[in-house]
């Protein structure tokens, strides 16, 4: 799993790609937490994520908690895929806003 970070006007976009399974989530956990700790407005782009496990959700929730504790905004962009269904069914989307389009996610943190 890879993470690409773009600092854009008004927000930061973190694009994840690959399988957000246990192995992938452990690989990006530290940089993801650092990002959540340092940025004020963060869009997590999951459009190129092909799989989501509980450890992936755990990383997202921890990042969301870190951002909230700093008064920062963190939202997820995830099109309607098997990955977004996992987020919905596990209740993650009730805790961290999930948007089906990048423009909607960006608007939410701007």
């Amino acid at each position: 799993m890879e993470i690409t970070i773009e600092d854009l006007p008004g927000h930061t976009k973190a694009s994840l790609s690959g399988r957000f399974d246990t192995t992938g989530a452990i690989a990006i956990e530290l940089p993801f937490n650092t990002l959540a700790n340092e940025r004020r407005a963060l869009v997590i782009d999951l459009s190129n994520v092909t799989f989501m496990s509980s450890y992936g959700i755990r990383v997202l929730l921890r990042g969301g908690k870190i951002a909230m504790s700093k008064g920062a905004k963190l939202v997820i962009f995830c099109p309607d895929t098997a990955v977004s269904k996992v987020l919905t069914r596990a209740g993650t989307s009730d805790l961290i806003p999930v948007y089906p389009t990048l423009s909607a996610a960006t608007a939410a943190v701007s």
Partner: peptide
């Protein structure tokens, strides 16, 4: 149980929940 908020949710123990789902 469905967490009331991000602040109160536990970040772990989701694996068996997903297996059930």
């Amino acid at each position: 149980e469905k967490p009331a908020s991000l602040e109160k949710t536990r970040v772990g123990e989701l694996g068996i929940h997903l297996i059930r789902l």
